[in-house]
Design a protein around this nucleic acid. Sequence first.
RNA 1: GCGGCGCUGGUCUAGCCUGGUUAGGACACCAGCCUUCCAAGCUGGUAAUCCCGGGUUCAAAUCCCGGGCGCCGCACCA
Length: 506
Amino acid sequence: MPIKLQKESIIEKVQELAKRRGFFWQSAEVYSPVGGFWNYGPLGLVLKNKIISSWRKWFVKDENAYEIETSNILPEIVWIASGHVENFVDKIVECKKCKSKFRADHLIEDILGEKEKLEGKTTEELTRIIRENKIKCPKCEGELSEVRTFNLMFPIYVGAYEEIKCYLRPETTQASVLDFMQVYRTQRGKLPLKIAQIGKAFRNEISPRQIFMRMREFTMAELQIFFNPEETKYEDFEKLSNYEVNLLPVELRQKGEENFVGISVSKALEKGWIPNEIIAYYIAKVFAFFTEELGFRKDYIRYKELLPEERAHYAKVHWDLEVYSKDFGWQECVNNAWRSDYDLSRHQKFSKQNFSVFENGKRILPHLYEPSFGIDRIFLLLLVNSFREDKERTWLQINRKFAPYDVGVFPLVSKDELKTKAREIYILLKNDFNIFYDESDSIGRRYRRADEVGIPACITIDFQTLKDNSVTLRDRDTMQQIRTRIPDLPDVLKKFLNGASLETLS
RNA sequence: GCGGCGCUGGUCUAGCCUGGUUAGGACACCAGCCUUCCAAGCUGGUAAUCCCGGGUUCAAAUCCCGGGCGCCGCACCA
C-alpha cells in the first residue's frame, strides 16, 4: 500500500506487510504474547498449505511413501529411549560474579582437555569436577554456580491426578519409528519403506528469535526412509544421479573452505562425500524441490555437512540444507540425518519389542535416513526472498503457483455495466481459481493492492469487454498486459499460472 | 538468561527530555462523489486500555519502580 516505509531491513518490511495484509502475526496478541508462538492469517495459511501440498506431491506421492498422523504427546519412556531426556538438555553453569553462562561440558573440556570423559555425566558429577579442579569463570575469574540443566522439551502431566509424565514431542520422527512395524505389516511393506509425517513439534527455546526461525511450536514435514544398510544400490538413484547440487562437505570445511561446490550427486558419491545411493538420491531430490518447485535461486541453496561436534546425538551423517537470504544469511531449513539404526535399536531395547524385518532370507534392523523440513522457515524465506520494491510499488515476486490468490478480477471503473460483467467473470472462474475481487478505488490502486500480496495475474473488465467479450490480463512482475477472450480465460490462466509468459499466450 | 534500545488507532508515527493539548498527522478502512488502465482528487465517517501493573503528583503517554513483548549484542540453538 502507498506507505513510505522507513524500515531498514527486508524482514521488517515483510513483517509489517504480513501483519497488515493477513499473512501472520503473534499468538495471543491482545494480551502480551508469549514469545515463540505465531498464528497464520488467511493469506499466509493459503501459502503454507500450498507449500505442504507441494511437499506431499514430491515426497509422499512421488516417493510412494505412507503418510501417517500421530499424537503430539508421548510418554516419557519414549523420550528416555530416544535419548532426548538425556541429550536434549543443556547443562549450564553461571558465573556468580559476572553472570556469564557456559555449557558445563564445553567449559571443562576447554580447561582440562579431552582427558575427562563427560559423556553421560550428571549435573552433580559435573559440579564436582568443576569444584575439584577449581575451575573459575574464564571471563572474570569469578566463582561458578552449581551445574543446572535446561531440558528443551515441554513436560506435560496426563491423567486426573497428573500421574503420567509425558512430553510434547520435539520432533515427529519418534512416532514414525514407533509405528514403523504397524505400517510395514498393514501395508505389506518392503525396504526401503518410507513413512511421511506432517505435524507440530514443540521446543522450549530459551530465547525465541527472528519470527519463524526459532519458534516454540512449529510445523515439520518429515520423510523417514527405512532401508537395508547392506544394500548399497538404490533403484531410483539413476533418475537423479547426474543432478547437480551445491555441497559444502566436512572435508572442505575442515580445510577452511566456506564456499559450496556445484557437483553432481554421483560425483559426490565417488568422492566419498555422500555415503550411499539412497542418501545421494534424496540429497538431489530435496535440492530440486527447493529450486524447481519452490522457485528459490539455485545459488541461494546449499548443503552444509555438519562437523562431528555439531551433530545431534543420533546422527551418523548430517547435512543441513540451507537457504540464503540477505537478512538471515544461510539458514538451515532441512535436516538430513542418517540416524543409522539408533532409534529402532533403542526402542527395541526399551520396549522389548522386535523392530527387525525379514527380507531376502535374513533378519534386518533397518537404518533410518531422514530429511526433516521446517515448513515455517521455508514459508518465511519464500516471502523474504520474493519481496521487491521500487520507487513506484511493492510486490511479492513469489512463484506464481504459491501465491495466496491466483488472480485479481477488477472492473476498470465503478460503473454498473462493468461491475455486472466483472461479477460474471468472477463466478465463471471462482471454482477453479482463488480470486481476489475488488471494485473499489482506482484501477491503479487495486493493482498495487494485488501486487503487494503477490497476486500473479489481474483481469480487468473495460468498455471494450462489452463490445467484443475480451478482457485484459496483467502480469504482476512486468505490469504488461494482453487481451484475452473470456471463453479462453480458464485455459489461458492455467497456462500462465504454470509459468507461461504473456507473449506465448497472446 | 544478561546488557543496551524500543513499545502511541489496523499500519507507520508526532508528542515524552522541559508533566496540564478535545493525544496531532500520514496511510489503511467504511459511505458517497469523481474517475475509460497502474498509489489522482473531493465530502463525510469509524477507529487509541498512549504495552501491563504499581508509585510520585492537584494532575502522568510524559517522571520513578516492577513486569510483558520486540530489536541488537553476548550466551544458547540437541
